[in-house]
Amino acid sequence: MTLAILIVGALLLVVLGTVLVIGTAHRLDRLHIRTDAARAGLSAALGRRAAVARVSGLGVRTLADEAEHASTEGRADAEDRLTAALDELDPRGLPEEVAGELADAQIRVVFACRVYNDAVRDTRALRARLLVRVLHLAGTAPLPRYFVITEPAIDTPQARFDEAAAEFSPDRRTGRRRTDRGR
Score class of each variant (00 low, 15 high):
I107S: 13
R39S: 11
A85E: 07
R124L: 15
R172G: 08
R172I: 02
L31D: 09
V15M: 14
E79P: 00
R129M: 10
A125S: 13
P157S: 06
L102Y: 10
R48C: 00
P152C: 01
A78M: 02
R54Q: 14
V55H: 08
I22F: 15
R75H: 11
H69K: 09
T140Y: 03
I7Q: 00
V8L: 14
A138D: 12
R114I: 01
D104W: 01
R34S: 14
V132Q: 04
P152S: 05
L6E: 02
L130F: 14
R48T: 15
Y116S: 06
R48A: 12
V132N: 09
A85G: 08
L86Y: 03
E151C: 00
G100S: 12
R178N: 12
R129W: 11
A76N: 07
T72F: 09
P157R: 07
L13R: 00
G47E: 03
P91S: 03
T174G: 07
E88T: 12
A25S: 15
A85N: 05
A44K: 10
R145V: 10
L63D: 12
E88G: 15
A53R: 00
T18D: 09
G100C: 00
A112M: 10
R27Q: 15
A153K: 10
L42F: 10
M1W: 00
L82T: 06
L131G: 08
G182R: 12
V110F: 01
D155I: 07
D36T: 08
G57N: 10
L12P: 02
A51I: 07
R61G: 08
V19N: 05
R160G: 03
P95H: 07
P95N: 10
D77I: 06
A25R: 14
L58C: 05
T24P: 04
Q106P: 02
N117G: 14
G17H: 07
D29M: 05
R183S: 11
S43N: 14
V60H: 02
I7E: 00
R27C: 04
I33C: 02
G57D: 10
T83D: 04
D29F: 13
T179I: 11
I33G: 03
L130D: 06
A38L: 07
A50V: 05
Y146N: 03
I22T: 09
I22A: 14
L86K: 05
A159N: 01
R183Q: 09
L102G: 01
R81I: 04
R121G: 01
I5T: 02
S56F: 00
A51D: 15
I149W: 08
N117K: 09
D122E: 15
D87H: 03
A45Y: 07
L13V: 12
L89Y: 04
L31C: 05
D171I: 00
V21L: 15
V52H: 03
T140M: 07
L20R: 12
Q158R: 09
L130T: 13
L143G: 03
V110T: 13
